[in-house]
Simulated scan of single mutants.
Amino acid sequence: MLRRIARPLLASVFVVDGLRAAARPQEELDHLPFAEDALGKAAERIPLPVSPDLLVRALGVAKVGAGVALGFGIAPRVAAGLLALLHTPTMLSRHPFWTETGARRREEFGGLVRDAAILGGLLLAVSDTNGKPSLAWRAEHATEQARRDAAKAAKHVAKDAKHVAKDAKRLTKHAAEEVKRSARQAAKDAKRAARSATKTVVTTAERDAAKLEAAAERTARRASRSVHKTTKRIEKDLHAAQANVESTFDHAVKDVVEGAKGIKEKAQAALPV
């Protein structure tokens, strides 16, 4: 409620001042002797044809707009800041007490103090957050809240890490036990498989040995029969050869005997009687 009264009262000074400057710019320049030269230089720097009177009118319109906004509470902090920027050079130009002496100097200094008080009111309006926390307080509060949240999160993370470590240790122990059991079972299975394989190999070897023995016996029998047949054939051939030799010898002996008899007969016939 207090702001609804204070803001229009503070803004009314700038609305009236802005209207006077917009309506009678030359009169405003007469009250601002030091500002006329500055406005003239500013008008020369603008590329468009602008006169000091037009700049005064523009500043007056800006004061009226910012004052109305402050009075009705439309972006009051921004409006107060704009009015403070416009009021500061006007305040110094309107009351140049350092150039006066005597009573005139005291009068100008009093006016400067009054305008400075108005500037203080504008600065208070700029800092007024309408009961809400300021940006600095919000930033500090957000930083503190973020720090507390980070600490809580770190505690939760540490606690979760401990739980995870315990679970991992338990799982590792369980896995090691499972590996040991699996290794023992694999060893038992390997022994059974080795015994079974040994039995199978021995049985197969015995069966193969029996087959080889039977095959050797058959081969020996076949070889024996073959040798027997060959022996008989050789004996038969020897008997036949012996018979041939005896027959040939008998014929040769008979021929020799017959030849000897013929020689004897011839020898006897040749001897003289």
Rank of each mutant, 00 (worst) to 15 (best):
P133D: 12
K180V: 12
E235C: 06
I234V: 07
K159C: 01
K191V: 10
V253T: 15
K211S: 04
P76F: 07
K63P: 00
H95F: 15
F109Y: 14
H174M: 11
I46W: 13
H141F: 13
A23P: 01
V126A: 02
L59Y: 10
D30K: 04
K166C: 09
T219H: 10
T129D: 07
T219I: 04
A194W: 00
A151P: 09
T200E: 01
G40R: 15
A175W: 07
T90M: 13
E144V: 03
R184N: 04
V15F: 04
A194Y: 01
R77F: 05
A240E: 04
A21M: 06
I234F: 07
R148A: 03
D149V: 02
T101E: 14
E177W: 10
D149P: 02
A187W: 05
L135Q: 02
V256P: 06
R104H: 14
R7W: 08
L48P: 02
F97V: 06
V50E: 08
A270K: 14
A142L: 14
S12W: 03
G259E: 11
A35K: 07
V64I: 13
G67K: 00
K229R: 12
D149H: 04
P25W: 05
A190Q: 02
R233G: 00
D255A: 15
V245G: 13
L86E: 13
T172Y: 05
L238P: 02
E144R: 02
W137H: 10
R24Q: 04
R94Q: 14
P272Y: 11
A241E: 11
